[in-house]
Design a protein around this nucleic acid. Structure first.
Lengths: 326, 326
DNA sequence: CAGCTTATGCTTAAATGGAGTATAACTGTT
DNA sequence: AACAGTTATACTCCATTTAAGCATAAGCTG
């Protein structure tokens, strides 16, 4: 059996307070074998941009990724980070039919621009379309109480081994913040994994993996295991915010503190105390005033800032130290 | 060109205050092409245990890894985590000669036991044999001042572009804690990467990559890019200590707080304030008394503790919150 | 101008973190 | 048995940080 290496990218940009990822729709259903093509649904599922590794030509994985991304989308990628390598053969139905074994190396990439991608089928989509339970900016997402919690409770009831049931119950509580547990924004992947195991997401249904989101399925599905990759990316990014100045890769060179806060809130999915956020960022030496001000905010004009590179030298882990940890 | 997937494991155990990894020596020089076999040196280099992925039989990457590790070593792996996927074709000299392209998926695995590995060529080795500059438990490692700092200064002088030189100088200072920068135990990989770029490690010398450590080369080299993988593993593990209770995977079920501290110090490479460490661990709810005491410590008998699983539910990031951050 | 919005500065109480002192309980020595 | 040496454990102190809120500044609209 031959092996193929695929490179998949979660390309993130934040505009208008919405964290967006680049999604491609394959109109020819290239990714789905015939029997999996939805009948009643003309649209193919959202998928992450994908490029194969050419083992002869491509020098390093990172270079290969940057290569085809810039070729296909023309986007200027700033920060690029390898996320995870997925090797489960069942992630792609084609492999059951004697196709090559596809190993996917997933990447997280940040970009400032939100320019329309060069490839016609690419669109920017709100992350939280796919993971609506992750957005707590307007309070606890409604879908958690209305759909996810009861469905998971029901799933837990189906576990016969009491020992195992107790364990899983605890795990669900911890990850989703049920029964008094606190919400940890970073556990994105663990939460998706639970929904997958409980078969609450269509990706876990082998028959019709790409049906439209129904009342019984939280969030819009994606092709193959792409929603899992997205969850990995969001979790990683949320964690990284705290100890590396990656937000600035998503902002213009000069920005107001409110803009900065808006982006952080968009990614972390929680609201932050404005005054403390200011103090944190300013006293932490992460930014310095550019001297200009902007009047585009509606109220009092805001000072503009830019990222202070020197902080990298001064502090071992220059990040945003969001509240709520421990 | 065909592709091969290799799985490499950094298997870590801590005994007698020494963080050890499992290393294999290939007596038949299987990993080195003839022209790279050292002439004056009968021993082959240390290498990480390695197993190929069978694309037909192996179901998931994780399972494949656990499979061959337990088969070859009989070690009970506890915590297993995927580290990184390395795809640089130059990492293996054989690839220049038309061999298959090898993509390596590296894993970090923790184990309690330090039993002699089943495979005859496997030995446990002190991590800091390979990365001596990472061990600050007895103060600043001598090798930093005597060898690394001057050699890096010399390397920086060879950079002609002043802009680039300034950047690299800053980077070196930040990573190695020169010029008043603080030492960040987590930047293990970045430090190795600098040594590699500055050609201070034999792995960067294409001619004789496995020569013995000389006065001009800090630390014992490893085969191929294995020292880079080790650096990745150590950095990741040091980071993880802070927000996940992974240390307990390395300890027996019941342990004294001094034992716990010893393991943490061994891995993080720094000494900790004993009383504060106690407070942290106890007040953090990470452990609870088992009721027993041990007399094996020399002085006053120590209470024994065990890991308190409930902490996973109570706190979002139950780790050890080591000092020195920010 | 009033009334709204957003930005920014400042205060306070509680929690945390880093360092030290003191005491307890064992070992082995004289 | 008194002793020093060793390790464990308890408690104190103070500076810093954090979370939360109050207050003021400076634009906009009508």
């Amino acid at each position: 059996m031959t092996i193929m290496i695929g490179l998949e990218a979660v390309i993130v940009a934040v505009t208008e307070g919405i964290p967006r990822i680049l999604s491609v729709r394959h109109t020819d259903h290239a990714l789905s074998p015939p029997e999996h093509r939805p009948l009643a649904q003309p649209e193919s599922p959202d998928a992450l941009p994908f490029g194969p590794l050419d083992p002869t030509a491509d020098c390093t994985l990172d270079q290969a990724l940057r290569g085809w991304v810039s070729e296909q989308t023309g986007l200027p990628l700033g920060y690029v980070e390898q996320l995870y390598t997925f090797g489960d053969p069942y992630r792609d139905p084609r492999q059951r039919e004697g196709g090559p074994r596809v190993i996917s190396v997933a990447y997280l990439a940040l970009t400032r621009e939100c320019a329309p991608a060069r490839e016609q089928n690419a669109v920017w989509r709100d992350c939280y379309t796919f993971l609506p339970w992750e957005d707590w900016r307007e309070g606890r997402p409604e879908i958690l109480g209305s759909l996810i919690e009861p469905a998971l409770q029901q799933w837990l009831q189906t576990i016969s081994d009491p020992q195992r049931q107790r364990r899983q119950h605890e795990r669900v509580d911890i990850c989703f913040g049920f029964s008094g547990s606190s919400w940890d924004p970073e556990r994105v992947l663990e939460r998706y994994q639970i929904l997958y195991e409980a078969a609450l997401v269509p990706e876990a249904w082998p028959e019709q993996p790409h049906s439209a989101p129904t009342a019984a399925s939280p969030g819009r599905p994606m092709a193959l295991d792409h929603r899992r990759i997205l969850a990995t990316a969001l979790g990683r990014l949320r964690g990284k915010l705290k100890y590396r100045p990656v937000v600035f890769e998503l902002l213009p060179d000069t920005f107001s503190l409110s803009q900065l806060q808006e982006v952080v809130e968009a990614l972390s999915g929680v609201r932050l105390h404005k005054q403390n956020f200011r103090r944190l960022v300013e006293k932490g030496g992460l930014v310095e005033e550019s001297g200009e001000t902007t009047f585009s905010t509606g109220g009092r004009p805001a000072k503009l800032f830019h990222f202070r590179r020197e902080v990298l030298r001064e502090r071992p882990a220059p990040g945003l130290r969001l509240p709520g940890r421990n």
